[in-house]
Measured scan of single mutants.
Amino acid sequence: MRSPRTRGRSGRPLSLLLALLCALRAKVCGASGQFELEILSMQNVNGELQNGNCCGGARNPGDRKCTRDECDTYFKVCLKEYQSRVTAGGPCSFGSGSTPVIGGNTFNLKASRGNDRNRIVLPFSFAWPRSYTLLVEAWDSSNDTVQPDSIIEKASHSGMINPSRQWQTLKQNTGVAHFEYQIRVTCDDYYYGFGCNKFCRPRDDFFGHYACDQNGNKTCMEGWMGPECNRAICRQGCSPKHGSCKLPGDCRCQYGWQGLYCDKCIPHPGCVHGICNEPWQCLCETNWGGQLCDKDLNYCGTHQPCLNGGTCSNTGPDKYQCSCPEGYSGPNCEIA
């Protein structure tokens, strides 16, 4: 077999650049994923090309098998939009790539799955459409700058595939050579959905506090709520009108309100015997008056200043008058 000629994957630097851009600016990249293909086995019993010639040398006159050299087999892949009637021409609109030389006439790579040499990765940054057309071609490398490479066999497949970690196996069982391969579509990290176009990256910072479920939905951490999980859940009972919080379990009062639940107004400074319904009010309790509710309107009842059976009459805020019984006098009937 001729010395292998290595063929790198098509578009790999571009895919790395796209992945970097997506990581830095995830909101700009609407989708991100990759179409993967792995060659599993190849069977070319006679070492022939599609045109019937030998990959190298002439045929044995007896059994008609190619004798001089085995094929240097590598694969090309073209991925494009779905076609009900597949045409070989036209651009590979979803991507293209190739393997290096991975074997001779016949080989089996099932035991070495995950080997990069027999895998082609086609990254995409558009919403995966699920339906596709795939062209797979086996080629013989001439290892010659003058002699062109020659095609051994080709296969085409049109179908639908959803993103999954599971592989789907396909076979080419007609023509001079048979080969088996597997395909799958996977979303990149933080991308979800059938189109790999739903973005969700767990975070716990100013912009949100959430994890992501298997469908890419945000699940808020304990103590947080809202579409972006950036609204803290305040202390139970915290007034929704007069209290708020920036951290879970907190209850910060608005100006003019106080209390554990921010449901108590702050009265006017200096208010003595008054209450409030709104901040800075001083609504006097019964029998109290004045701007600060510090004037006693029922001095008689509060202090009972009249002595010796005198009768007390309220005459104004903090004022009274005693009517003394016979034989007593003085402001409080204290003089006998």
Score class of each variant (00 low, 15 high):
P13T: 15
C333S: 02
F206L: 13
F94C: 07
N53S: 01
G159D: 11
S84Y: 06
C229W: 00
G216V: 08
C251F: 07
C324F: 01
C234Y: 08
S93R: 13
N108S: 04
C293S: 00
R5L: 14
G8C: 15
S164I: 05
R203I: 07
C196W: 00
F206V: 15
K218E: 14
F194C: 09
S32T: 06
C276G: 01
P129L: 12
S323T: 05
D204N: 07
R25Q: 14
D204V: 12
S96T: 05
Y210F: 09
G62A: 15
G259V: 00
R25P: 03
I39M: 03
C71R: 15
K246T: 08
K241E: 12
I120V: 08
K76T: 10
L307H: 09
A31P: 02
G56S: 04
D149V: 02
H273Y: 10
N105D: 04
Q304L: 15
L292F: 08
C238G: 12
E137Q: 07
M160R: 10
K65T: 13
I161F: 15
L18R: 01
F107S: 07
C324Y: 07
Q172L: 15
T73P: 09
G256R: 02
G57C: 13
E278G: 12
N308K: 10
P325R: 14
Y191S: 09
P240R: 13
E334A: 05
Q43E: 01
Y328S: 03
R5G: 13
P269R: 11
I183F: 12
R119G: 09
K295N: 09
A26T: 12
C245F: 01
S313R: 07
L79H: 01
K295T: 08
S323P: 02
G316C: 13
N197H: 05
V121M: 04
L109P: 13
Y320S: 09
N60K: 10
L79I: 10
P267S: 07
C312Y: 00
I266M: 05
C265G: 01
I102V: 01
M42K: 03
P331S: 15
N162H: 12
P129Q: 02
R5Q: 14
C71Y: 05
P248S: 05
Q166E: 09
G11W: 15
S10P: 05
Y190C: 11
G270A: 08
N277Y: 00
W167R: 00
Y261F: 03
G104S: 03
I183T: 01
N277D: 05
Q291E: 10
Y261D: 10
V136L: 04
H178N: 06
A111S: 03
Y82S: 15
M221L: 13
C284W: 01
L170V: 12
P269T: 08
R2S: 08
F199Y: 04
V176A: 12
G89R: 11
K264T: 06
D318G: 10
A19T: 14
K319R: 13
L307P: 04
C312S: 00
D116Y: 12
F94Y: 06
C212W: 06
E334K: 09
I120M: 07
C234G: 13
N143H: 08
W257C: 00
G11E: 14
E285V: 00
K246N: 09
I151M: 11
G33V: 01
A58D: 10
D205E: 09
R2P: 05
L37S: 01
I102L: 14
N53D: 06
S239R: 12
E36A: 04
A138T: 02
T219I: 12
E180V: 11
L122M: 04
I335L: 09
Q166P: 13
R130G: 09
H178Q: 03
D144Y: 08
A211D: 02
D296G: 02
S32W: 03
E278V: 05
G103A: 15
K154M: 09
V121E: 01
S112R: 10
K264E: 13
D144V: 11
G216R: 12
C54Y: 10
S244Y: 02
L307R: 09
S239T: 05
I233L: 11
L18V: 02
G56D: 11
K80Q: 09
C196R: 03
C333W: 02
M221K: 06
E137D: 08
C284S: 00
C300R: 01
G226S: 04
M42L: 07
A88S: 12
S156F: 14
S93C: 12
L21H: 10
G243A: 04
K264Q: 08
D250E: 09
G97A: 14
P305L: 15
E222A: 13
C66G: 15
I233M: 14
G33S: 04
D69E: 14
C187S: 01
A19D: 02
G95C: 00
S313T: 06
D72V: 11
S125R: 08
D189E: 07
E278D: 09
L297V: 10
I275S: 00
T315I: 14
L20R: 00
V86A: 12
T302N: 01
Y191H: 06
D188Y: 00
Q281L: 04
G195S: 10
A211S: 15
N332K: 09
Q304R: 05
A155V: 12
F207C: 11
L122Q: 01
C306Y: 01
G216D: 10
I275N: 00
E153G: 09
P163L: 03
Q321K: 08
R59W: 14
P13R: 01
N60T: 15
K110N: 12
W224C: 01
I102T: 13
A26D: 05
Q83H: 13
G104A: 14
Q166K: 10
L109H: 04
F124S: 00
C245S: 08
R113S: 02
E38A: 02
